[in-house]
């Protein structure tokens, strides 16, 4: 692998990581995300599969 390819590859990872963690504005489309482990679901495990349902995402912690 050449250095330029490696740099492009790393750049792509950085861009993808940044995109995955981007903040959103009201009215923007929520990116798809598949959840590796999900308790209590009806068998659907991704945001795309939940289209048609209003979804309240609640970030929580125990501290």
């Amino acid at each position: 692998m050449t250095l330029s390819r490696l740099v492009r590859g790393v750049g792509m990872v950085v861009v993808l990581t940044t995109a995955a963690l981007a903040q959103l504005k009201v009215g923007e489309l929520v990116p798809d995300k598949t959840f590796a482990q999900m308790l209590n679901s009806d068998g659907r495990k991704s945001m795309a599969e939940l289209k048609g349902s209003p979804v309240l995402i609640d970030w929580w912690g125990n501290h």
Binding site: L24, K25, V26, G27, E28, L29, V30, M47, A48, L50, K51, G52, S53, P54, V55, L56, I57
Partner: peptide, 9 residues
């Protein structure tokens, strides 16, 4: 955050 039925925030 509340996501609408069409997938928008």
């Amino acid at each position: 955050a509340l996501v609408g039925v069409d997938g928008t925030l």
